[in-house]
Structure formats: C-alpha cells, structure tokens
Simulated assay, not measured.
Amino acid sequence: MVSIFEIQSVTKSFGEFTAIKDVSLDLPEGKVTSLIGPSGCGKSTLLKLMLGLEQADQGSVRFRDSEVCDLDLEKFRQKIGYVIQTGGLFPHYTARENIILMAQYLGWPANEIDMRLEELINLTSFPVGGLDKFSGELSGGQRQRVALMRALMLKPDVLFLDEPLGALDTIIRHDLQTDLKQIFSKLNMTVVLVTHDMAEAVYLADHLVLMSEGGIVQQGKLADMVHKPADPFVTRFLTAQRHINDMLEQAK
C-alpha cells in the first residue's frame, strides 16, 4: 500500500515537555486514519508536524518522498485541507466568502469558483440560503460544514480534521458523523482525523492509531485492540469509552 506521509523516529519538545517521543508512522493514501487518545497525548502536535506548522527536533516527516521541511510550504499547504475544532471561520466574512477565499487569492476564474462551490454545497448538504450569512448567524453544525467546504475548495490531496466535532452537541455531532462518512466514501481521499472519541474513530476511520504520552501504543483495527491489546493502557482506554459495548459488537 502506498504511503502519502512517512514519519520516522520523530521527537518534538516544547521546552522541557516532550510532546512526541520517537514516533514512526506510515499513512496510507486514499484511506481514513484516525489519531486517537486522551487530551495531551500528542495527536494535534503530530498533525502540525505533518502540516509543517511545527518542525521535528529529531527524525523525519516526509510527504510523497520529500521532506516536509524542504518543501515550499505555501504551495504544500494548498494540497492539504485543514479543519480545526472551532471551524476557524473569519467572523467578518459570509459563509460564501470564507469558502472561496483561497480560490480568489489564487486567481481562480469566477465561473470555476462557482462550479466548485456548487459541488461542495451538494456534497455537504449545506443550505444555499446560508451562504450569505455570517458565521455568527449559523448553527454550530453549519459552521463546521462551511469549514469543511473551505478545506475542500482547492481539491486537496489530504484532509486533516482536528477534533472537528468536539464542540458540537450530541445530536448535531451524530448527524455530522453520518454525513462525514458518506463524504469520505464519495471523495475516496486521504483523511487524517484527530479525536479522543473511540466510537467516532471506529465509525469513520479505516485505520486506528492509539497514542499516549507522546507515543504510539498500538495501531490497526479495533478487533486487534480489543482481543490483542499491546499494552494495558489500550484496554483501559477502551473501557473508559461510553460506547464500548457498541465497539465490542463491531469487533466481533
């Protein structure tokens, strides 16, 4: 299987705190990989290293056989869609203006922008009437759909989602999980999902990477983690999840 990102023996510290400890990981192209684990385990830091927002103290982060730190980062990041937990929308822009911002900056023709916007509206089931509303006038679920459309506007090679549903209430989160699964299936693209919710990771991802204290404890399928835990932490993390019974059923 072809790897789009190759992470080899990476360590990253902030002062005296080591956020990532000797991590090696290959991310398969065209698959959904979920980085899971408790808060502060290094998930988001690993994502930032892949984005080039942080640079490793030791080790190598490669994108399609090139060191990320050696790439033209502006052009590289145009190949990566990135959605954060709060959406990160510009409050003084309408939904439409947020979505098309980078396409306009790069000089896309107006008709091409309109065609891509229509594709994304259909993909995410976003109401057309919401395009001219400011972020403060949108619901939490609508804001995240706008953030997702903005991340997909440039037709990126990879989509990074950093706790994209963490701030939403249960019902909206459930609906968006369902929609995201359908979107991933339609796009057939490489996705990296960061979450602390194991049930969400299992539902959305093809490959699970469980982290703790800056390192990878185990990776693979849920069934392996349930029946062949690599460390006592794996079992502790699974049993701490509210949806453990559902996950156990899926692992059978």
Rank of each mutant, 00 (worst) to 15 (best):
G42D: 12
V32P: 10
M50G: 06
D26Q: 13
K21F: 07
K31F: 13
F17Y: 15
G52Q: 10
A19G: 01
P38C: 14
D22Y: 05
I20M: 05
M50T: 04
L46T: 03
A19T: 06
L51S: 11
P28W: 12
T33E: 04
K21C: 08
V23Q: 00
T18I: 14
T18V: 15
K43T: 08
G37A: 04
T18N: 04
S34M: 12
L25A: 08
C41M: 04
L51H: 07
T18P: 07
I20P: 02
G40W: 13
G42M: 07
G37Y: 00
I36Y: 05
L49C: 10
L49S: 05
P28Y: 13
G30E: 07
S39P: 06
C41N: 06
T33R: 02
K21H: 15
L47A: 08
S44F: 11
L46Q: 05
L27T: 04
K21Y: 12
L27G: 08
K31H: 11
G37T: 00
T18D: 07
L51W: 03
G37Q: 01
L35I: 07
T33C: 07
G42Y: 07
P28F: 12
F17M: 15
M50I: 05
G40R: 06
P38F: 14
A19R: 00
I36S: 02
L53S: 00
S34D: 10
L25H: 07
A19L: 01
I36G: 04
E29Q: 06
L49R: 00
P38H: 15
I36M: 11
K43N: 14
S39Q: 11
G37D: 03
I20L: 09
L49M: 08
L46M: 09
S34Q: 12
L25R: 06
S44Y: 10
P38D: 15
I20N: 03
K48N: 14
A19I: 05
L35P: 00
S34V: 09
K21E: 09
S44Q: 07
I20C: 00
S44I: 12
D22S: 02
L46D: 00
L47H: 05
D26T: 12
L46F: 06
C41S: 15
G42W: 04
I20A: 02
S34C: 15
I36V: 13
E29Y: 05
S24V: 02
K21S: 12
L49F: 00
D26P: 07
D26R: 14
T33L: 02
S44R: 04
L35A: 09
E29D: 07
E29M: 04
I36F: 06
A19V: 00
C41K: 01
I36T: 11
T33Y: 03
P28G: 12
G40T: 07
P38V: 15
A19W: 01
K31S: 14
L53Q: 09
F17W: 15
T18R: 12
K43V: 04
L46A: 05
G52P: 01
G42E: 11
L49A: 09
L53W: 05
D26L: 10
L27V: 14
P38Y: 14
L46K: 02
G30L: 10
L47G: 06
G42T: 12
G42F: 09
L25I: 02
I20S: 03
G37S: 10
K48Y: 11
L49V: 04
